[in-house]
Measured scan of single mutants.
Amino acid sequence: MGFKLLSKLLVYLTASIMAIASPLAFSVDSSGEYPTVSEIPVGEVRLYQIADGVWSHIATQSFDGAVYPSNGLIVRDGDELLLIDTAWGAKNTAALLAEIEKQIGLPVTRAVSTHFHDDRVGGVDVLRAAGVATYASPSTRRLAEVEGNEIPTHSLEGLSSSGDAVRFGPVELFYPGAAHSTDNLIVYVPSASVLYGGCAIYELSRTSAGNVADADLAEWPTSIERIQQHYPEAQFVIPGHGLPGGLDLLKHTTNVVKAHTNRSVVE
């Protein structure tokens, strides 16, 4: 069995187990497998329904001669939608809004960016022009300005110390501490036991640490421990890039980060 097929099978099995364990909360999309990078042309966006009122959005972007996937989250909030992270750029984010209108038909009224990198804030200006209120932590807003990236308009308070959590509509926002970046936030959907790890969490097929220019490698494993301790009931975990899975993604990420750190020390 090929690795790609095995990865998709694991996603399907995880979703099936969740649907059985929580039949009222989960209505997993039966329309197909989780979209992969090879299936999404740059400039297009796919939506994948995880649970009743919960979707991931998947886009792709060219970077350094390669094409990478990027995940975000959409959560229903009454007759409105909360968006977590842009679709990595203005063109993708405009396509995301169009796809949401086509498939869901509810307005996106608020959006949260989970850290300051372009795959999370690139497209904020498109959201703002569409009347979406954009939010991020003060740290993310400051770092985005320093980096020359787009800056969300509103500040999220109460997320300055490791372990801080605040309720934001249908989700809980959690600051686990520094990891992929010093400002990275985690998003949890309690009604569906869905954990969105953003770039602080890796997919299972990833074996290298990737972009760690703004990471705190020493603190990252401790931050992941905080996530595990705060959300032990999480059933569906979405990484910032690639295929979702279960809580095993947290341990896998820790292993990859520690291996990278150990290699760096040896070198």
Rank of each mutant, 00 (worst) to 15 (best):
residue 103 Q to C: 08
residue 44 E to Q: 13
residue 159 L to I: 09
residue 108 V to S: 00
residue 10 L to M: 12
residue 4 K to Y: 09
residue 95 A to S: 11
residue 130 A to M: 13
residue 38 S to F: 12
residue 237 V to Q: 01
residue 147 E to H: 15
residue 180 H to K: 01
residue 82 L to C: 02
residue 14 T to L: 10
residue 51 A to H: 07
residue 155 S to T: 14
residue 68 Y to A: 13
residue 66 A to D: 15
residue 2 G to W: 09
residue 194 V to K: 01
residue 256 V to Q: 05
residue 99 E to N: 12
residue 145 E to A: 15
residue 158 G to E: 07
residue 230 H to N: 13
residue 11 V to R: 11
residue 222 T to V: 12
residue 38 S to I: 08
residue 50 I to T: 05
residue 85 D to K: 00
residue 82 L to N: 04
residue 34 Y to D: 07
residue 23 P to E: 09
residue 42 V to A: 14
residue 194 V to R: 01
residue 219 E to C: 04
residue 254 T to N: 14
residue 120 R to T: 02
residue 118 D to G: 08
residue 116 F to Y: 10
residue 251 K to E: 13
residue 37 V to H: 14
residue 206 R to I: 15
residue 166 V to A: 08
residue 241 H to Q: 03
residue 243 L to S: 15
residue 9 L to M: 10
residue 237 V to E: 01
residue 203 E to Q: 06
residue 100 I to Y: 02
residue 85 D to W: 00
residue 169 G to S: 05
residue 12 Y to L: 09
residue 16 S to V: 13
residue 262 N to Y: 10
residue 265 V to C: 04
residue 250 L to Q: 03
residue 107 P to R: 14
residue 76 R to I: 07
residue 133 A to T: 13
residue 139 S to E: 13
residue 101 E to M: 09
residue 220 W to S: 02
residue 190 P to D: 09
residue 229 Q to C: 04
residue 104 I to Y: 00
residue 231 Y to F: 11
residue 225 E to T: 10
residue 50 I to Y: 04
residue 103 Q to F: 13
residue 2 G to H: 15
residue 91 K to L: 14
residue 232 P to K: 13
residue 104 I to C: 00
residue 189 V to Y: 04
residue 7 S to I: 11
residue 205 S to T: 10
residue 22 S to N: 11
residue 80 E to C: 06
residue 168 F to K: 02
residue 56 S to T: 15
residue 140 T to F: 04
residue 126 V to M: 07
residue 217 L to F: 08
residue 101 E to I: 06
residue 44 E to K: 11
residue 259 A to E: 10
residue 6 L to G: 12
residue 117 H to W: 00
residue 117 H to G: 00
residue 62 S to D: 15
residue 195 L to Y: 01
residue 188 Y to P: 00
residue 130 A to W: 09
residue 120 R to G: 04
residue 197 G to C: 07
residue 113 S to A: 13
residue 180 H to Q: 05
residue 103 Q to E: 15
residue 86 T to V: 01
residue 26 F to L: 15
residue 130 A to F: 11
residue 98 A to I: 08
residue 190 P to E: 12
residue 106 L to V: 10
residue 63 F to C: 05
residue 145 E to V: 09
residue 173 L to Q: 01
residue 29 D to F: 10
residue 80 E to D: 08
residue 123 G to Q: 05
residue 57 H to R: 03
residue 19 A to R: 15
residue 71 N to I: 04
residue 66 A to S: 14
residue 209 A to N: 15
residue 252 H to R: 03
residue 210 G to V: 05
residue 108 V to F: 03
residue 215 A to K: 07
residue 221 P to Q: 09
residue 67 V to E: 15
residue 38 S to N: 08
residue 171 V to L: 06
residue 189 V to T: 01
residue 223 S to L: 03
residue 154 H to G: 08
residue 100 I to H: 00
residue 175 Y to E: 01
residue 76 R to A: 10
residue 89 G to D: 02
residue 253 T to G: 01
residue 264 S to M: 10
residue 236 F to C: 09
residue 134 T to A: 04
residue 118 D to I: 08
residue 163 G to H: 06
residue 224 I to T: 05
residue 55 W to H: 04
residue 26 F to N: 11
residue 244 P to T: 03
residue 51 A to D: 10
residue 121 V to I: 09
residue 66 A to T: 12
residue 108 V to T: 05
residue 53 G to I: 08
residue 12 Y to M: 14
residue 236 F to P: 03
residue 256 V to L: 08
residue 47 L to R: 04
residue 123 G to M: 03
residue 236 F to S: 10
residue 29 D to S: 10
residue 248 D to Q: 12
residue 213 A to H: 12
residue 184 N to R: 01
residue 25 A to C: 14
residue 56 S to M: 15
residue 71 N to H: 03
residue 70 S to N: 06
residue 247 L to N: 15
residue 84 I to C: 00
residue 116 F to M: 05
residue 23 P to S: 10
residue 10 L to R: 11
residue 187 V to G: 01
residue 65 G to L: 07
residue 72 G to M: 03
residue 99 E to C: 06
residue 166 V to Q: 11
residue 202 Y to S: 06
residue 141 R to A: 07
residue 124 V to R: 01
residue 222 T to G: 12
residue 150 E to N: 07
residue 25 A to D: 13
residue 156 L to T: 03
residue 83 L to H: 00
residue 115 H to I: 00
residue 252 H to T: 03
residue 44 E to W: 08
residue 86 T to C: 04
residue 121 V to Y: 01
residue 75 V to S: 03
residue 185 L to T: 03
residue 22 S to E: 14
residue 64 D to C: 05
residue 153 T to C: 04
residue 82 L to Q: 00
residue 227 I to S: 05
residue 79 D to L: 09
residue 76 R to K: 07
residue 75 V to L: 05
residue 180 H to E: 00
residue 156 L to S: 02
residue 8 K to I: 13
residue 234 A to G: 04
residue 181 S to R: 01
residue 193 S to F: 14
residue 4 K to G: 05
residue 97 L to I: 06
residue 144 A to D: 04
residue 218 A to N: 13
residue 39 E to D: 12
residue 44 E to S: 14
residue 106 L to T: 07
residue 129 A to S: 12
residue 246 G to N: 14
residue 123 G to K: 04
residue 61 Q to K: 15
residue 22 S to M: 12
residue 21 A to N: 15
residue 93 T to F: 00
residue 169 G to M: 02
residue 2 G to A: 09
residue 2 G to K: 11
residue 104 I to G: 00
residue 241 H to E: 01
residue 264 S to L: 12
residue 80 E to V: 08
residue 137 S to E: 01
residue 157 E to M: 13
residue 87 A to I: 01
residue 154 H to W: 12
residue 54 V to L: 06
residue 196 Y to V: 02
residue 65 G to H: 10
residue 263 R to H: 11
residue 165 A to P: 08
residue 154 H to S: 09
residue 244 P to I: 09
residue 264 S to N: 15
residue 206 R to W: 12
residue 13 L to W: 11
residue 81 L to Q: 00
residue 51 A to Y: 09
residue 27 S to Y: 10
residue 10 L to N: 15
residue 131 G to P: 05
residue 68 Y to E: 08
residue 228 Q to G: 10
residue 81 L to C: 04
residue 220 W to N: 01
residue 210 G to R: 05
residue 74 I to W: 02
residue 8 K to C: 15
residue 82 L to P: 04
residue 107 P to Y: 07
residue 91 K to Y: 09
residue 31 S to C: 07
residue 38 S to A: 11
residue 216 D to C: 04
residue 256 V to H: 02
residue 250 L to D: 02
residue 31 S to M: 10
residue 157 E to I: 10
residue 193 S to T: 11
residue 219 E to S: 12
residue 61 Q to F: 06
residue 73 L to G: 04
residue 204 L to D: 09
residue 5 L to D: 15
residue 218 A to E: 13
residue 99 E to A: 14
residue 11 V to G: 07
residue 152 P to V: 01
residue 96 L to S: 00
residue 219 E to Y: 06
residue 129 A to T: 10
residue 98 A to S: 13
residue 42 V to H: 08
residue 39 E to G: 13
residue 176 P to M: 01
residue 14 T to Y: 14
residue 186 I to A: 08
residue 46 R to C: 06
residue 93 T to H: 02
residue 183 D to G: 02
residue 53 G to A: 08
residue 70 S to M: 05
residue 214 D to G: 13
residue 39 E to I: 11
residue 102 K to E: 12
residue 236 F to T: 10
residue 217 L to E: 06
residue 92 N to F: 00
residue 161 S to E: 14
residue 191 S to L: 08
residue 34 Y to E: 08
residue 31 S to H: 08
residue 226 R to P: 05
residue 246 G to L: 03
residue 64 D to R: 09
residue 259 A to T: 11
residue 147 E to Q: 14
residue 131 G to W: 05
residue 102 K to D: 14
residue 122 G to R: 08
residue 203 E to G: 08
residue 232 P to D: 07
residue 252 H to N: 08
residue 242 G to E: 04
residue 77 D to W: 08
residue 181 S to I: 01
residue 84 I to S: 01
residue 46 R to T: 07
residue 203 E to M: 01
residue 15 A to S: 13
residue 141 R to W: 03
residue 255 N to I: 11
residue 251 K to N: 12
residue 105 G to R: 11
residue 84 I to T: 02
residue 87 A to V: 02
residue 146 V to W: 13
residue 216 D to K: 08
residue 19 A to E: 15
residue 63 F to W: 08
residue 160 S to Y: 10
residue 161 S to K: 13
residue 175 Y to W: 05
residue 168 F to M: 10
residue 77 D to H: 07
residue 90 A to C: 01
residue 5 L to T: 15
residue 22 S to I: 11
residue 40 I to L: 15
residue 27 S to C: 12
residue 97 L to H: 02
residue 14 T to N: 09
residue 194 V to Y: 04
residue 70 S to Q: 03
residue 105 G to V: 07
residue 242 G to Q: 02
residue 45 V to E: 04
residue 253 T to S: 06
residue 5 L to A: 15
residue 150 E to Y: 03
residue 184 N to I: 05
residue 265 V to M: 10
residue 29 D to W: 14
residue 21 A to Q: 14
residue 33 E to M: 09
residue 155 S to V: 15
residue 177 G to H: 02
residue 160 S to W: 11
residue 49 Q to A: 12
residue 118 D to N: 08
residue 48 Y to G: 06
residue 148 G to H: 11
residue 147 E to R: 13
residue 170 P to E: 06
residue 206 R to Q: 15
residue 73 L to K: 02
residue 8 K to R: 10
residue 154 H to Q: 09
residue 196 Y to I: 03
residue 179 A to E: 04
residue 188 Y to L: 00
residue 116 F to H: 06
residue 164 D to T: 11
residue 137 S to V: 05
residue 201 I to Y: 02
residue 31 S to Q: 09
residue 148 G to L: 06
residue 7 S to K: 10
residue 89 G to H: 00
residue 18 M to I: 15
residue 212 V to H: 10
residue 265 V to D: 13
residue 267 E to C: 04
residue 256 V to N: 00
residue 36 T to I: 13
residue 95 A to M: 11
residue 118 D to S: 08
residue 235 Q to V: 10
residue 113 S to L: 05
residue 149 N to R: 12
residue 171 V to N: 00
residue 205 S to F: 09
residue 17 I to P: 05
residue 128 R to H: 13
residue 118 D to C: 05
residue 257 V to R: 02
residue 71 N to L: 02
residue 177 G to E: 01
residue 226 R to C: 02
